[in-house]
Amino acid sequence: MNEKTMLDDDHYENVIREESVCTSENLVYERPETLLDTPLHYCPGCGHGVVHRIIAEVVDELGIQEETIGVAPVGCAVFAYNYLNIDMSEAAHGRASAVATGIKRVLPEKYVFSYQGDGDLAAIGTGETIHTCNRGENLLIIFINNGIYGMTGGQMAPTTLPGMKSTTSPFGRDVKSMGAPLKITDLVAQLPGTYYVTRQSVHKPANVRKTKKAILKGFQFQKENKGTCFVEVVSNCPSNWKMTPLESNKFLEDQMLPFYPLGDLKNPERKEK
């Protein structure tokens, strides 16, 4: 530990912390066990870290660490397996749901999920996404939509907003020549194979709680063999949106959410009530 850190630690210890509060019986929130110690490689403020943590929390709360197999995509989350302490398979670009199908078909008793970005799931992997959902594979697809290719450096994604600038739409996305953003979550909600389709975000504490409930449901429905569960998380990309994390969350709320409104697109359990 360097000197500066120590100085500040002292400051922190002396001025603020009340030892009586920080006891194991008062502990209400800590990093889930299934999230490994490894520091995340994501840029500051990136939503990936939150969703990783949520998955780990749900796996811990359901006690299914031994029965869960995840599939990582190609994209920023390609290293998801470095952070989640569960067996994982790294898929080729766009093929995560096919890889997940292969795993689930031979291990039908296990919990299987894929974790994919917008380029992976809604551009190169559209075919696999649609057909996995159409067959109603009993697995959970977690779809992180930040409207941009993060890992390759900010190119236009299938979900980039109209008029939004990227390195390959430097003058803004022109829907006449580049097509309109693909609302693939709306598409898969139309398929009989999907059981639970929802769109959430993680930019505010209340939204984080909702996303966690959605992912929890996704795993629970999988246990009941209900069909494909699809959780879209509208997320941010401060680095490639060229914003601070706080600005990116504001952009998400002001620009992304009107185009990608939050809420359940398909939830049979709710209708029954």
Binding site: A91, R95, A98, V99, G102, R105, H131
Partner: peptide, 17 residues
């Protein structure tokens, strides 16, 4: 599968088990 691309990636996933 829906394509040979999907087939081989299903093989990848299942062979991994």
């Amino acid at each position: 599968a829906e394509s040979e691309v999907a087939s081989i990636n299903m093989v990848y996933g299942a062979a991994g088990t």
